[in-house]
């Protein structure tokens, strides 16, 4: 058995006294595309925050290539090659489009992604490269956020609700770009409200409900009934 790239075991997470995750486990192998689904407040974003280090985690609750990384600083975890496209994009408002991408590449990790590659993937960004990032449309901002994460040449990219608040046609065009991204041997975790979308891009799915994993299985094999039970807990 090969060692998992990211191995989450019995992960608990707290906001103050409030416990948001209960013993969550997840194995992500190199090349996997994992979908994480669940209702609002199920703990999807919390899971992302715990993996990236924003929330304190027990050291061995999160292992990266066999090495415990729970409790490390956010920037140290990012330097390992774990990138996050945060929910709501959260671009740097006083930086231009290109500066947002460049600061994503601040880590200077080696890999295929460069400004040029990002502009090939999303040509519209090159046209607007000197515009303030937050002056772009929602869809274009999402492209900047994805590009910013890719610029660090991560081994694992986590995308939190990238279709939230976007028009369906924009969502489609972003998802059409995904295979081109993941095709580079990248491993991905996609958090998504749209279950059909999540299943279509992923190889494995995890459903969260009230801070616990309520279902996991290969994306092609889980049934509709199983998902609605895991999703709503009925």
């Amino acid at each position: 058995m090969t060692e998992a790239l990211l191995d989450i075991q019995r992960l608990d997470a707290f906001y103050g006294d409030f416990q948001a995750l209960y013993g969550v486990g997840m194995q992500v192998n190199r090349g996997d595309v994992i979908a994480v689904i669940g209702a609002n407040g199920a703990g999807k974003t919390t899971l992302m925050r715990a993996v990236t280090g924003f929330l304190r985690a027990r050291p061995d609750a999160v292992c990266w290539k066999g090495r415990p990384i729970g409790g490390m600083r956010v920037d140290q975890i990012a330097a390992l090659g774990i990138a996050l496209v945060p929910e709501g994009r959260l671009l740097f408002a006083s930086l231009s489009v290109e500066e947002n991408l460049m600061i994503g590449g601040q880590l200077k990790r080696k890999g295929p992604w460069s400004l040029k590659r990002i502009y090939d993937l999303f040509p519209v960004l090159e046209e607007r490269r000197n515009a303030p990032a937050t002056s772009l449309s929602g869809g274009q901002q999402q492209m900047v956020a994805i590009g910013r994460a890719l610029m660090s040449n991560p081994e694992l990219i986590m995308m939190d609700e990238i279709s939230l608040g976007l028009a369906p046609v924009i969502i489609r065009s972003i998802y059409e770009a995904l295979p081109g991204i993941i095709g580079e041997g990248l491993t991905a975790i996609v958090v998504e409200q749209d279950i059909a979308k999540a299943l279509s891009v992923s190889s494995r799915v995890y459903c969260l409900q009230e801070g616990r994993v309520s279902l996991t299985g290969p994306s092609g094999k889980v049934s509709h009934d199983e998902i609605s039970r895991a999703y709503f807990g009925i």
Partner: peptide, 20 residues
């Protein structure tokens, strides 16, 4: 650039591998 990004979003800047 890192100063301006930190000024904008103190939390997200760390995701860029920047030690705040």
């Amino acid at each position: 650039r890192a100063f301006r990004a930190t000024s904008d979003r103190q939390d997200i800047v760390q995701l860029m591998g920047i030690n705040r």
